[in-house]
Design a protein around this nucleic acid. Sequence first.
DNA 1: TTACCATATCAAATATTCTTGATATGTGCA
DNA 2: TGCACATATCAAGAATATTTGATATGGTAA
Lengths: 104, 104
Amino acid sequence: MVDNVRIAKALSDPIRYQIMMMLVHGEAKCCKVTSEDGERVGLCNCEIMTELGLIQSRVSYHMKELVDAGLVIEEPRGKWKHYFINTETVRAFMEQLNQDLGES
Amino acid sequence: MVDNVRIAKALSDPIRYQIMMMLVHGEAKCCKVTSEDGERVGLCNCEIMTELGLIQSRVSYHMKELVDAGLVIEEPRGKWKHYFINTETVRAFMEQLNQDLGES
DNA sequence: TTACCATATCAAATATTCTTGATATGTGCA
DNA sequence: TGCACATATCAAGAATATTTGATATGGTAA
């Protein structure tokens, strides 16, 4: 329950929800970002800043919230950070939600 | 998107999440509560107050948040209020979540 | 090494949310 | 009507969250 409340809180900010959607559906305009295993497609920091028109420290704050909640995985690439959605957490959240609030 | 952020915010408080779970799985100890159509089982206000050990105005505040988010339906019964989970909203939330953040 | 760039962190200001006690509203019953 | 009870609302304070500019950290490349 604690986990789901935490994740719900992370998703309860419009900026963070948008970032999550960008990570899933977003076009990478500034740089091509693939995970170490070459599977997942993600975004770099600059993408989020320019796309949403936010200053650096603000993006940094919200990314930390998402990472802390387990919703986003970050991979450092030299001086950049690349962000990927943590599908495992999203899946677990929805499953738990269904267990807690779904039809009995 | 706006809707889902709103609902996530409603679920992002541990008390409200607990209340939602009570509405789905909770035993009605103080009074038997069935909806007008006799289908759904709900809870009365006193149940929530005693079960969670909260004062009246606090419960009232959180119930309003849940009702405003569309997660809970309230039916007045004389001087009491009976609360039911709005399964429609819960379902729509999960569906939208899957659309927004699920596997592409 | 230094210069430069990306990101993190900090402290202060602001905004939002939550809690509480007091009071108001509304309902049923004597 | 007037009393008793359930719920809603209000105002004030406390607690959290968010935003911002300034500064720190850490990496890259010359």
